[in-house]
Simulated assay, not measured.
Amino acid sequence: MGITIETNHLKAVLDEKGAELTSLKRKDADIEYIWQADPKYWKRHAPVLFPIVGSLKANTYTYKGKSYHLPQHGFARDMVFELIDQKEDAVSFRLKSTEETKKMYPFDFELTIGYALGGDGLTVDYQVKNTADDEMYFSIGGHPAFNVPLEDSFEFTDYYVDPSPMKSRINLPLKEGLIDLEQRTLGQTNTTIALNHELFENDALIYETKGLNSFAIRNEQSKHSVTLSFKNFSYVGIWSTYPKESPFVCIEPWVGVADTLESTGELTGKLGIQKLAAQDTFHTKYAIVIK
C-alpha cells in the first residue's frame, strides 16, 4: 500500500520499495501524470538510480584492484527504504549501506530521498552522505515516466518535448547500452522535439546539461502538460521503449551516465562519476510541475 501526501489541489503516492513515486495527480483534473507500470510495456514508475546511472561494461567495475558487479542503474530501485519522516504534504525515505550492498558496492552511505508538494508540482530531493572515513564514488539520477498521451482523446504523436533554454546541447549516443563518445554530436535541442516512437530506435536521447534546464511534454491542442526542471544535474535522458510502442516518455535528470565503449572499468575514472569526501554530503533536487 502506498504512502499518500497531498495539498488542496495535488496528490502524490510513494512506495517504500525504491522510495518510488507511483502517482501524481491534480485534484481538479482526472489525469494521472505518472506511468502506471503496466508490465506489458515497462514495470516501473519513477525509479531512483543509485549508485550508478546506466550500464557498466559487462555489469562490472573495479575499485582498489577488486572487481564488483552491479546491474544497470544500480540496486536502490529494488530495495526497501526506511520511512523517516511524513507530513501531510511531504515525506522522506532513507537507505543505508549493509553488508549485502557492500558486496556490490564497497562504500558506507546513507541515501535520503524527500518528496514535497507545493505550488503546481512536486520537488524531489536527493542527499547522499558518505558515512565512512575514506572517499566515496557514486552516481545518482531520476527516471520518472510520464503518461503520453495524458488524455485519452489524443495520440502519442500529438505531443512534443519542449526544452528550455532552447539551445543546442551535446548529444551522447548509445551503442548496446554504452556511450559512444566518438559519435557524439551537437543535439538539436534549440527547437522542440516532436514525439514519435522511432525517436527511441537507438535507445535514450542523452544530452549534456549545465545550469538551469527544464524539459516539458506538451500538446498544442491541450492545456495539460508536465515539466521537469533541474539545475545541478550533468545529463538528461529522454526515453521510451522501442520497438515496443509504449504510452509513456521518461525525462531523466542524471548525475552520472553509462560507461563509454572505451571504459577501462575503473570506477574512479568513470565518465560523470562523483567523488565525495569522508563524512561529506552531496545534495541536489529536481521539480515536476503539472498543468
Rank of each mutant, 00 (worst) to 15 (best):
G2N: 14
T4P: 07
I5H: 05
E6N: 12
N8F: 14
H9Q: 15
L10S: 08
D15S: 15
D15G: 14
E16N: 09
E16G: 01
E20Q: 10
L21V: 09
T22V: 14
T22N: 07
S23E: 08
K25V: 11
R26W: 02
D28Q: 01
D28H: 00
A29F: 00
D30S: 07
D30T: 05
P39F: 12
Y41D: 07
Y41I: 09
Y41T: 07
W42A: 08
K43V: 05
P47A: 09
V48T: 12
K57A: 12
A58L: 13
N59Q: 12
T60K: 14
T62Y: 01
K66C: 06
L70Y: 11
G74S: 13
R77C: 14
D78M: 12
M79I: 12
D85P: 08
Q86E: 15
D89A: 10
D89G: 01
A90N: 11
A90E: 11
F93V: 03
L95I: 00
K96C: 07
E100V: 12
E100T: 13
K102V: 02
M104E: 09
Y105N: 07
P106H: 08
D108H: 13
E110H: 02
E110C: 04
E110D: 10
G114V: 05
A116P: 00
L117P: 02
G118P: 09
G118L: 03
D120A: 10
L122S: 07
D125H: 03
V128W: 10
N130Y: 05
A132D: 15
D133P: 10
D133H: 03
D134P: 00
M136F: 03
M136E: 07
I140A: 04
G141D: 00
G142P: 06
V148H: 08
D152Q: 08
F154L: 02
F154I: 00
E155S: 14
E155I: 08
D158R: 00
Y160T: 02
Y160F: 13
D162M: 14
P163E: 11
K167Y: 03
S168T: 15
L172C: 08
L174M: 10
I179W: 01
I179M: 06
Q183H: 13
T185W: 11
Q188V: 12
T189G: 11
N190F: 10
L195R: 12
L195V: 10
L195A: 11
L199V: 04
F200T: 03
D203F: 03
L205F: 04
T209L: 05
T209V: 04
G211N: 06
G211C: 07
G211M: 07
A216C: 06
R218C: 09
R218I: 00
N219C: 13
E220P: 04
Q221Y: 13
S222P: 03
S225R: 02
S225K: 04
T227E: 06
L228K: 00
S229N: 05
N232L: 00
N232Y: 00
F233P: 02
V249G: 07
E252R: 04
E252A: 08
W254N: 05
V255F: 06
G256H: 03
V257C: 12
D259Y: 14
D259A: 14
L261A: 06
S263Y: 09
T264D: 15
G265D: 13
E266W: 10
G269E: 13
G269A: 09
K275V: 10
A278F: 02
A278P: 14
Q279V: 04
Q279P: 01
D280V: 12
T281C: 14
A287R: 15
V289W: 09
